[in-house]
C-alpha cells in the first residue's frame, strides 16, 4: 500500500476516521443549504418592498441551480468502486464505461449550472447596467452555484474517505 503512494506528503491520520467522514457529510449538507437559501434570499428580496427596480427573479434565475443540483445528485449517486471495475477480470460488460459516461453527464450538468449562473449575471444584470441592490440578485445566483459545486466536492471527498476506511479495515 505504501509503495503505491504518489505524493510526498502522506495523508494525516485523522482524515480516515469515521468521525471526519460524517463531519464532511454534514458540512456538505450545510453548504448545499447555504446555496439554496442564498438564491431564496435573492428571490424573496426581489419581491419585497426593498427592491426598487423592475427586475425580478423568475424561473430563468432558478434554472442554473436546478441543473447544478441535478449534477450533484448524479455524481454522488454513482458507486465509486465501479469506476475502476474493468481492471478486475470478473466484472466485464463495460460497467466502468457506463459509470464514466454517467459521471461525465453529471459533471457537465454541474459545470453547465455554473456557466448558466454566470450567463444570467451577465445577460440580465451586467449588460442592462443595473446598480448594486439589484445586481445582488445576479451575484447571489453565481454564489449559489459555486456553493453547490463546493458542496459536491466535499461530499465526494468524504465518500472516498469512507472507501479508504473500509479498505483499511478489510486488510
Amino acid at each position: 500500500m505504501s509503495e503505491e503512494r504518489l505524493w510526498k506528503f502522506r495523508k494525516p491520520e485523522w482524515m480516515n476516521s469515521s468521525m471526519a467522514r460524517s463531519a464532511g457529510v454534514y458540512a456538505a449538507g450545510a453548504l448545499f443549504s447555504l446555496s439554496f437559501f442564498t438564491l431564496l434570499d435573492a428571490a424573496v428580496f426581489s419581491h419585497s418592498a426593498l427592491n426598487g427596480s423592475d427586475v425580478h427573479i423568475t424561473f430563468i434565475d432558478w434554472l442554473p441551480l436546478i441543473f447544478s443540483s441535478l449534477g450533484m445528485l448524479i455524481i454522488n449517486s454513482i458507486e465509486k468502486t465501479r469506476l475502476s471495475a474493468d481492471s478486475f477480470s470478473y466484472s466485464g460488460s463495460g460497467v466502468a464505461w457506463k459509470a464514466r459516461v454517467v459521471l461525465f453527464l453529471g459533471f457537465a450538468s454541474l459545470a453547465g449550472g455554473m456557466a448558466g449562473g454566470v450567463t444570467v449575471l451577465v445577460l440580465k444584470y451586467v449588460v442592462t447596467e443595473t446598480v448594486w441592490p439589484t445586481l445582488y440578485m445576479g451575484v447571489a445566483n453565481v454564489l449559489a452555484n459555486g456553493l453547490v459545486m463546493l458542496s459536491s466536492v466535499v461530499l465526494w471527498i468524504s465518500q472516498n474517505m469512507e472507501d479508504e476506511y473500509a479498505y483499511n479495515l478489510a486488510l
Binding site: 454534514y26 458540512a27 456538505a28 449538507g29 450545510a30 448545499f32 443549504s33 461530499l155
Partner: peptide, 8 residues
C-alpha cells in the same frame, strides 16, 4: 446530509 441541511 439532510440533517446538515435542516440545521443551517
Amino acid at each position: 446530509f439532510l440533517t446538515g441541511f435542516l440545521v443551517v
